[in-house]
């Protein structure tokens, strides 16, 4: 066995062997500190131990294996907008207005704020009730009434197959300007409403299928710069859309319109 410590205490290793000059002098600050420590040794040690434990625990907590953060979800992936159908426009709506309802549904994910609802046609304006911004948390399902107002009949689309409803959505991760393509029924209702809204003035009615000819025949001069001259659409019998179940049967479907254009297999 090869011990390296002294078998017996060596010189100067006993307490009593210590240099007498190194002992605290009574009445000095060092002596008072020593006496205070002697009196409070146990609480001091307990406190120090607690501090060490706390520091260790804190360090362990800070360096623990963290749960993976949920992936950043774009708000457009957690919100759905579906078309419900035509509605009566509000009494305060201007002439050439029509309304329909959509349902905004929030799927599981971070809360989303709907900050804007718009549509892409320059000749048509849009308002909604409720007005954005409004929040949509998971489980949110709310009916939103959209009212569109035709400002310029000469520039509204004739019979668009897949019009958008553009919705700007925001969550903590991103802002998305997302197009919701509400399908054939929405396209039909919008086209029907636009036609009905502008039908009483042939100079400014929406463009039929051969748009090239119509663009040439109806230049921008056919606008309604003076609203007072516009036909009245908001009377009870002319309010657009006059859309109920029966009027769907009269519409030209998107499929019909595409049939002449789509070729046989190449």
């Amino acid at each position: 066995m090869s011990g390296i410590s002294p078998v017996e205490p060596g010189e100067g290793t006993r307490a009593g062997d210590a240099d007498p000059d190194s002992r605290p002098v009574p009445g000095t600050p060092r002596q008072r500190l020593t006496e205070w420590y002697t009196r409070h040794r146990r609480p001091m040690l307990a406190g120090a131990s607690a501090a060490v434990l706390l520091a260790g625990g804190g360090s362990f907590y800070a360096t623990r294996d963290k749960e993976p953060e949920p992936p950043a979800v774009h708000p457009s992936q957690t919100v759905r907008v579906t078309y419900l159908g035509a509605e009566s426009p509000p009494p305060s709506a201007p002439t050439r207005s029509f309304s329909f309802a959509v349902r905004v549904t929030a799927l599981p994910g971070p809360p989303v704020t709907v900050t804007r609802i718009s549509q892409p046609y320059a000749a048509v304006s849009l308002t909604s009730a409720p007005r954005p911004p409004f929040s949509a948390k998971a489980g949110f399902a709310r009916k939103i009434v959209i009212t569109m107002h035709v400002m310029d009949c000469s520039h509204v689309p004739g019979n668009a197959g897949l019009p958008f409803l553009d919705v700007t959505l925001r969550n903590t991760n991103a802002i998305d300007n997302h197009s919701f393509i509400l399908g054939e029924r929405y396209a039909q209702d919008v086209s029907q409403a636009l036609r009905a809204g502008c039908a009483d003035d042939p100079e400014s009615s929406p463009k039929p299928l051969n748009t090239t000819e119509i663009i040439r025949a109806h230049p921008a001069s056919s606008h309604y710069p003076d609203r007072a001259n516009q036909p009245e659409f908001r009377s009870s019998t002319h309010r657009v859309p006059l859309c109920n179940t029966s009027c769907h049967n009269k519409r030209v479907t998107a499929s019909d319109r595409l049939s002449s254009a789509f070729p046989a297999h190449a």
Partner: peptide, 24 residues
């Protein structure tokens, strides 16, 4: 390119573009 995919896609694009008021 006159193929099933290309001709079909061009056709559905064209139909909608014209409906919107665009000119081919």
């Amino acid at each position: 390119d006159k193929k099933t995919y290309g001709a079909g896609l061009a056709s559905t694009f064209t139909a909608e573009f014209k409906e919107l008021g665009g000119e081919v």
